[in-house]
Design a binder for these strands. Structure first.
Lengths: 204, 204
DNA sequence: AGGGTAACAGACTGAAAAGTCTGTTTACCC
DNA sequence: GGGTAAACAGACTTTTCAGTCTGTTACCCT
């Protein structure tokens, strides 16, 4: 039973630093040796645990990447009251952590989507699935917001969800250039403006 | 004199298909041979005209990429009256051409920004410069819109510009997944909504 | 305790890819 | 029309990298 644990621990370790390095350097631009160097591990160890670079990356996407996106962008909103405010707070805190990265490399998920598009449909599907979960949860939250009287009943929840996702992906892409504090401020400001149209107006 | 023309023509040819292939496969994932295969040209020819892959790519960015972004996203808005409507029309037609790509690979500029971030500060600067030109032109257009009575004087033009750029980058990233017609429709719809807050309200 | 297997080390292979170099063709000039 | 340099061809070099394979260590079970 000890061995099982060891195995899991090592795989976790390889996956965790793998995600970091892939995030920083991109998938095609990082070699397995790059990751192993960081881990002081050998090729033998790696290929004992994983079949190929591709299968390895997919396992990272399904385990770590999905959970990362879920915990930072989906869970804080899921099932909460007052979705609009929750979304603002959630996005703002996500941007805050990004802002405090010494070097920011953008939004992990959209980076990989950009990198794999047209090259690996298999991996693309796994990545798109994460986006879909995000979208569905946003739509659900907005619909619930309508029932609870926080969101105007006339808004198109799906359109708002895609608009939110778009703008988030975009601002994260822009933030890599360094001046991220100002960008975050401007973005959240405009997001609040946008939500003024969407929120439920109490009949006067 | 004929030779000068030939030289220019060949360089143009190499650059043009280079941009296409880089756009489709990414910079690091395409070899010079890939491009030369497409052109039925030899390595000797290529390295006669260009010093290195990097210098070659920079020349593409400065010549072709800048002009491409300028002509599709900046010029149609520059100096026009009624900037908000012009922006909607401009974004919509840009998304339309993207929609009709058999296989879409996203927004060229943001793809490269994602790819080069943290890897090549030199190239990053050239790419960021294009973004800056875009941003400045949007801000100018919005300011002019204020003077001309199309845009509410209280809006923060710079914040709106970054919000616009963000959302555009994001929607183009999302559109790669295929269902781009619906995405375009939703996006433009929400963009129009957003602009309702920004436009100048005639005092009743 | 010792056999057996899981976990790992690291040299090796083959393919790809950037850049070089030498040779060949093409176009221009007198 | 022959000399000259630009324009191009393509074999070659060197490096990098995914994946293989054989050998070694650590742990577990009886």
């Amino acid at each position: 039973m000890e061995k099982q644990l060891k195995r899991m621990a090592t795989m976790q370790r390889i996956q965790t630093t793998g995600l970091e390095v892939f995030y920083q350097k991109g998938y095609f631009n990082t070699s397995i040796d790059d990751i192993l160097k960081e881990l002081s591990l050998s090729k033998g160890a790696f290929y004992y645990h994983f079949q190929s670079k591709e299968e390895y990356f997919i396992s990272i996407v399904q385990n770590l990447l999905f959970r990362k996106v879920y915990s930072t962008l989906i869970e804080p909103i899921e099932g909460q009251e007052d979705p609009l405010n929750k979304i603002v707070v959630c996005f703002d805190s996500a941007l805050e952590t990004a802002e405090h990265n010494f070097l920011d490399y953008g939004f992990v998920l959209s980076n990989f989507i950009t990198e794999f598009n047209g090259k690996n449909p298999d991996i693309m599907n796994y990545l798109q699935d994460i986006l879909k979960v995000w979208e569905v949860n946003l739509v659900t939250a907005l619909q619930k917001g309508k029932s609870d009287g926080y969101v105007n009943r006339h808004v198109d929840s799906e359109a708002v969800a895609t608009y939110l996702i778009s703008s988030y992906i975009g601002i994260r892409t822009l933030m890599v250039e360094g001046n991220s504090k100002m960008l975050r401020y401007k973005y959240i400001q405009q997001l609040r403006q946008y939500f003024r149209l969407i929120e439920h107006k109490e009949p006067a």
